[in-house]
Design a binder for these strands. Structure first.
Lengths: 190, 190
DNA sequence: GTCTATATGGGGATAGAC
DNA sequence: GTCTATCCCCATATAGAC
């Protein structure tokens, strides 16, 4: 557990601002002002605006990748694996909802690391697709269009960051369980 | 059916660019270049960059508002109403996937019309919440956390624009039906 | 209706004093 | 580690010729 450096503070503050207005609309002067300093001073801690975005996004993308890999390697039913994926998203989004906004909305502004990010993203989708396809094959999951099931689940999980800061969702265990119910069982009573 | 004016073309092209990089990162030079003209020439057709965003977003927001009002006033079961809401989103997103990106991601860059937009958005969510709450009360919908059901459905519908341009989803009827199944019945087989 | 030229402001980033 | 001053570039938008 390292102590938080000034650089970490800057990145955290930047993520908060990026969530409100997006990467392109946030200026280094905005960021400096939120930190209580002048824009030029930021550059003693970070190399560039682009580096801030890169650190926010790549860190999160790698967390998802390694989290999913662990789930994939476990010996659970595919429905259980999906429940674990829900937990993974709730956990990461709870810890860092601001960063999640950049991951979802500002990845296209990555320069150097864009290809790497896209690779992680594509692989993530592909692995989740395989969990669903396996579930269909083993009769755990209905034989409906896999892409629709995949994107329905994934887009809900990806937008978690936008409502997780609200009061009702401070209990990650409970939220994960309720969300799994809705995503897996649907909302229909009959 | 009016013929498409140059202004309409500019707005359509702008929406396409906004979808790729977001409002703030698209310059009037980018837009002009995509239109095969110089930036200054754009101003013979539109008043400002801000006006383009406003037209894209407010038009769509009003379409959703009036669409939902019609559904709300019909005499259907609440589950049927949700199916109609799915159809509404599929229809609008199919007609204008580029504009939907701005509606979802760039509304915070609205200046003059921001408050109006937020009012429409809040009302939309509130009406949909009431449909779900009614459904729970009448035993059509499970008695699970309403906010979670609402946001799970809504975020899936809101992100439709990002995957609707793909080949498999060109049939709005079929897509609506499959998506309703997944959202309402879930994915579980047992 | 499109162009060139330009006004005006703000962006990211660096130099060098303290 | 923070500041002031500044560089250089590009943003939106307008004026006025063709």
């Amino acid at each position: 557990m390292k102590t938080e450096t000034r650089k970490d503070e800057i990145i955290k503050t930047a993520a908060k601002l990026f969530k409100e207005k997006g990467y392109s609309a946030v200026t280094m002067r905005d960021l400096a002002s939120a930190m209580g300093m002048k824009a030029a001073s930021l550059y003693n801690h970070i190399k560039s605006k682009q580096q801030i975005l890169k650190e926010i996004i790549i860190t999160l993308a790698e967390e998802f990748t390694s989290g999913l890999r662990q789930i994939q390697q476990s010996e659970k039913s595919n429905i259980k694996k999906i429940e674990e994926v829900v937990k993974l998203h709730v956990k990461i989004a709870s810890q860092n909802p601001y960063g999640m906004a950049s991951l979802n909305n500002d990845w296209m502004h990555l320069e150097e690391k864009l290809d790497y990010y896209l690779e992680l993203r594509t692989n993530y989708e592909e692995e989740l697709r395989e969990i669903i396809a396996e579930g269909v094959k083993k009769d755990e999951i209905i034989d409906e269009n896999i892409e629709i099931m995949l994107f329905s689940i994934l887009t809900t999980l990806r937008s978690l960051y936008s409502w997780i800061p609200k009061k009702e969702y401070r209990n990650p265990e409970k939220l994960s369980q309720q969300l799994s119910t809705v995503l897996i069982q649907g909302i229909n009573k009959n």
